[in-house]
């Protein structure tokens, strides 16, 4: 066997061995790649992207005392990705002295909203600059009804009290009484329904946060028509928002782990492709 043939033979064997690697090794690498940076943070720099800056600017453009609508359209399965964005936006709204009307199109959104309220309760005065109106069924139809008469959909808050008794709700009629709506969304009903009804039909500016999986589907709505004003897509974007607000939270803490995990995935993709190429090369030779 010539020297060239020997080197090709050993390379194709390596390719075969690599392609047979037990996937559990990959799981272990990912686990370590995520755990170690959480325990020993490296402090990688976080760059703010234009879409997140648009969301920040929209909240910033509201005047003190303006009323904003936050819709919690997700459940605990998406909590790690969306909750940090919701927390950061509520903190931003508190800093700007905005009035927060919180609702949920997903049943579990109510308890996730309450978690944030309990954390921030020192700066939130219930009924004055914050109210939790709870969950409403109906999705798109419910949003349409809110556009006609908001109180018809939410006559009572999550505790069962008449919303007319609270300062924050006293003169609310429809979407015209809100500066914008932010949907924290991980599916249907969620951000798409808000864009379709509140944005495109009633002209209320729509923004918010989605899971990273859904993000590519929402990017086309950020356009000249301003169907969607910015987007906090996934944990990385939530970390960017935390940076803008100036209060690092769980998203920022997870960014080192996210970067290292991505690096590991990239390395394995390269290894996988090299193995595929070597195997293909060998098959061709054998043929």
């Amino acid at each position: 066997m010539s020297k060239k043939n020997i080197s090709q033979h050993s390379a194709s064997n390596e390719g075969k061995q690599i392609s047979k690697i037990d996937r559990r090794w990959i799981f272990l690498f990912i686990l370590l790649g995520v755990s170690i940076p959480l325990l020993i943070p490296f402090g990688f720099e976080i760059e703010v992207t234009p879409n997140v800056k648009m969301v920040y600017d929209l909240v910033n453009s509201a005047h003190p005392g303006d009323r904003i609508l936050l819709s919690f359209d997700y459940d605990p399965a998406s909590k790690p990705e969306i909750q940090p964005a919701a927390e950061a936006m509520i903190q931003h709204a508190i800093d700007k002295d905005l009035k927060i009307v919180a609702i949920a199109l997903w049943p579990m959104g109510v308890s996730l909203m309450n978690e944030i309220y309990e954390k921030k309760s020192d700066n939130l005065n219930y009924g004055v600059n914050f109210i939790n109106l709870g969950y409403t069924a109906g999705g798109m139809v419910a949003i349409q009804s809110m556009g006609r008469n908001f109180i018809d959909v939410f006559p009572r808050d999550a505790n069962g009290d008449d919303v007319r008794n609270f300062d924050i709700m006293r003169d609310v009629r429809n979407f015209n009484d809100f500066s914008f709506v932010a949907s924290f969304s991980s599916g249907t009903p969620g951000m798409r329904e808000w864009i379709m009804v509140a944005g495109d039909s009633y002209g209320l500016p729509v923004t918010g946060s989605t899971t990273a999986v859904s993000t590519p589907g929402f990017l086309p709505y950020i356009n000249e028509q301003r169907q969607l004003i910015g987007l906090i897509g996934g944990l990385k974007a939530a970390a960017e928002y935390e940076k803008l607000v100036g209060i690092p939270g769980t998203a920022t803490a997870g960014m080192d782990a996210q970067s290292i995990a991505h690096l590991i995935i990239i390395i394995f993709i390269i290894i996988g492709n090299v193995a595929w190429y070597l195997n293909k090369h060998k098959s061709k030779k054998e043929a």
Binding site: I30, L31, V34, S35, L38, A77, K79, P80, E81, T211, A212, V213, T215, P216, G233, G234, L235, K236, T250, A253, G254, A257, Q258, A261, H262, I265
Partner: peptide, 16 residues
């Protein structure tokens, strides 16, 4: 890429 990022984010949440 976004899907991979989302799955890692969920893992980060659980590990946190």
């Amino acid at each position: 890429g976004f899907t991979a990022m989302a799955r890692i984010s969920l893992l980060i949440g659980r590990l946190q």
